[in-house]
Design a protein around this nucleic acid. Structure first.
Lengths: 191, 191
DNA sequence: TCCGTTATGTACTCTGTAGTACACAATTGG
DNA sequence: CCAATTGTGTACTACAGAGTACATAACGGA
């Protein structure tokens, strides 16, 4: 009973993600989000709470999306190196492609000093931990594919560092070919 | 003639850098900077212009500092690999050490969506270009130290990617030993 | 000592924006 | 068709913070 919602919350979260990605947390105004999504402020507050809570919802949703995709790509059969290369390569169009070099919402949030809120930090740390854990698990499972002395844990972390660096630099516009060349060079560490 | 300044502009720029680093551009209020530096707002405006101009001054100063240091470290004699390792290692305490893991002002600014101002972008791009150029020059000069097929330009860029990744992750608190391990692993690419 | 000039401090204006009060619309159940 | 309930839109409030007007203080020069 009662009046039903006139909008799909997921759609609003998509729009909000775009705005947060483009403007950053502070500079993204709720007026901009309501204008872009077409719904009015009271509806937004009723559905998601205040700005901070909305951002947290958007961020968690973003994290879940990337993690789900990473799980799929990293679970594929064949050499671990190919899976990880594909995982890294998958970010190239996502962050420096046609949609514009907007970088990664999570990294932007992590480097945004105004967001030292505990919940945001926790969400980001959990996300990074889980990503790295996926890499580590795959490298450990396939450690027989590598030379003696290969360190799966360290290499997983190094791949995370490279990933983070690429996503950060992508924000200021990277050349896709160069990004791919870096990925290929780093992949020689998986031997 | 006329009344002299009661403060050293460089001191104020230091203080402003701290605040911008801790809070980010948007969230750093001028009230906070004036409070921390002890000077009043009109003096600040008279000396540096508006908030944007102040930030640009701070950023340029920061860039100059890092570039000067990089020039010195990368000019040292001996194997290029050692110089570059030392350069990378130099950032560890700077960004994840006792002063707290606050990351890099330039990277924070680059990932801050609210700062798509042309001048800021230009300053950051110029900085990155010059850093990478220093690495490239050194690797090219010492290319005889490396195996046949070694690509100095690509490797310089890869080192930049790793540097950026480390600085970005340092922002959320890295373990110094792990950072060093990553650096050492990546240094095996310089062979 | 007086004047011109430049810095300083107080106290303000103005604007952008987060958050909300309230009247109204839309729906379900009786 | 009515009532209860929940979403919606307009219009507001509250407030933080960027930028400034103005009176005053500190200096050098004549």
């Amino acid at each position: 009973m009662a009046r039903p919602r006139s909008f799909d919350p997921d759609d609003v979260l998509e729009v909000a993600r775009e705005v947060f990605l483009r403007k950053g947390y502070q500079a993204a105004s709720l007026d901009e989000i309501t204008a872009a999504s077409g719904i009015a402020k009271p509806s937004l507050y009723a559905a998601f709470g205040d700005k901070h809570a909305l951002f947290l919802r958007v961020l968690d949703r973003y994290h879940d999306g990337i993690l789900g995709w990473a799980e799929r790509v990293l679970a594929q059969p064949g050499p671990a190196r190919d899976a990880i290369r594909q995982w890294l390569t998958g970010f190239v169009p996502y962050c420096s492609g046609a949609k514009g070099a907007r970088g990664c919402l999570s990294i932007n949030a992590a480097t945004d000093g105004s967001l030292d809120q505990a919940e945001i930090r926790k969400s980001i740390e959990r996300y990074n931990r889980r990503l790295e854990q996926l890499l580590r698990a795959r490298l450990n499972a396939d450690r027989a594919q590598f030379k003696k002395g290969f360190d799966p844990d360290l290499t997983a972390h190094t791949v995370m560092v490279v990933h983070t660096g690429l996503m950060t630099l992508a924000h200021q516009g990277s050349d896709a070919k160069q990004v791919q060349a870096v990925i290929d060079q780093v992949m020689t560490l998986l031997a």
